[in-house]
Write a protein that binds this DNA or RNA. Structure first.
Length: 328
DNA sequence: AGCCAGGCTTGGT
DNA sequence: ACCAAGCATGGC
């Protein structure tokens, strides 16, 4: 299925490559990635964004929600302070947007992000999904016509399928290869996977997770997954909380400090006032707004909240992307 | 308070 | 070519 979202001032390249998401890859002129259980191909067109999926889609609301294509960007930009650094960043990153991600995927990704650079975060998250997510069908391939074939997926490489063994060996005496199932060569990297649920991660061991090269973040992710799977933490009910309540709630999770909580609040819960301060932003703020002055991190956060207005998180994204891509 | 915990990239030498 | 620094958090 294919649809065209008409939208102005939307730079897909900048948006999908600005450290908000870690699973999107550019293939030729299009971006391929996963939203929920949809494997999606996105490309920039003259008047918007073209999206393709393998399966029938009647309601594209989930896509508009993820892309935030209805957001009035001009209205957001108008609230930014009129100072030199902001003007430069906005001019340099025209069409940069904030996405609206699934809270769990966002939370887990940012737990894994601590003291990692973006390239490594991508590797870790990719490994996690390949090992423990469910394989998805690529948009270009037709859906399998034989219903039995859909029941004979072999387990992802490196993973024992426990429990529902009914599913793995039903009709066919010999398991179908991935290329039989999907109609293309499913070499590593060609298949896409859903993001593993809290429940599926909660059932793993720390060493399962360490095999994804996440190091000391493995116990953090495992503990967070278990807190959520046990119902001790309700990511859905965090939606009802205001910014500071939600921040305090998320920080109860292992591996979640102020910075990571702010990332999740901004990228998944739509709290535009969240202003994640990582080393890049901290350096930029000190250099641009407090040259040769000693300012504590707390003061810096206070300044950011006061100075950048109700959509401070958007302003942060412009500064972040500007210093990372244009000021290297 | 200050250090350490994977491992991969970046930057300095 | 080699080697240190950087990275956000929790635990000691």
């Amino acid at each position: 299925m294919e649809t065209l979202l008409t939208v102005r001032d939307y730079d897909l390249d900048a948006t999908l490559d600005s450290g908000q998401v870690f699973r999107w890859r550019k293939e030729d002129d299009a971006w391929v990635g996963v939203i929920g259980r949809h494997r999606v191909r996105l490309s920039q067109t003259g008047d918007g964004i073209c999206a393709q999926t393998a399966e029938q889609v009647t309601d594209w609301q989930w896509l508009r929600e993820f892309l935030q294509s209805e957001t009035d960007l001009a209205a957001v930009l108008k609230t930014f302070p009129d100072d030199e650094p902001m003007r430069v960043a906005v001019a340099a990153c025209h069409g940069l947007r904030l996405l609206r991600q699934d809270p769990w995927e966002c939370l887990a990704s940012f737990i894994l992000s601590s003291t990692k650079q973006i390239v490594q975060i991508r590797q870790i998250v990719a490994l996690l999904c390949e090992k423990f997510g469910e394989p998805l069908i690529r948009p270009e391939a037709p859906l399998p016509t034989n219903p039995h074939l859909t029941l004979t997926l072999s387990p992802p490489i490196g993973r024992e399928r426990r429990g529902n063994s009914k599913r793995t060996r039903t009709v066919l005496s010999k398991p179908a290869s991935k290329s039989q199932v999907y109609g293309f060569n499913a070499a590593r990297g060609d298949l896409f996977y859903s993001f593993p649920s809290p429940k599926s991660i909660a059932g793993l061991t720390e060493s399962d997770l360490r095999a994804c090269k996440m190091g000391f973040r493995a116990p953090h992710l495992l503990a967070a997954a278990r807190q959520i799977a046990d119902g001790k933490m309700e990511l859905e009910s965090v939606r009802k909380l205001d910014y500071s309540e939600a921040r305090a709630e998320l920080m109860k999770l292992r591996g979640v400090g102020g910075k990571i909580a702010d990332c999740v609040l901004l990228f998944a819960y739509g709290h535009d006032s969240a202003f994640p301060v990582d080393v890049w932003i901290e350096r930029a703020l000190r250099q641009l707004y407090f040259p040769r002055r000693r300012v504590t991190e707390k003061k810096l956060r206070h300044f950011a909240a006061m100075h950048f207005g109700p959509h401070a998180g958007y302003a942060q994204q412009y500064l972040f992307h500007y210093i990372r891509t244009k000021l290297r």
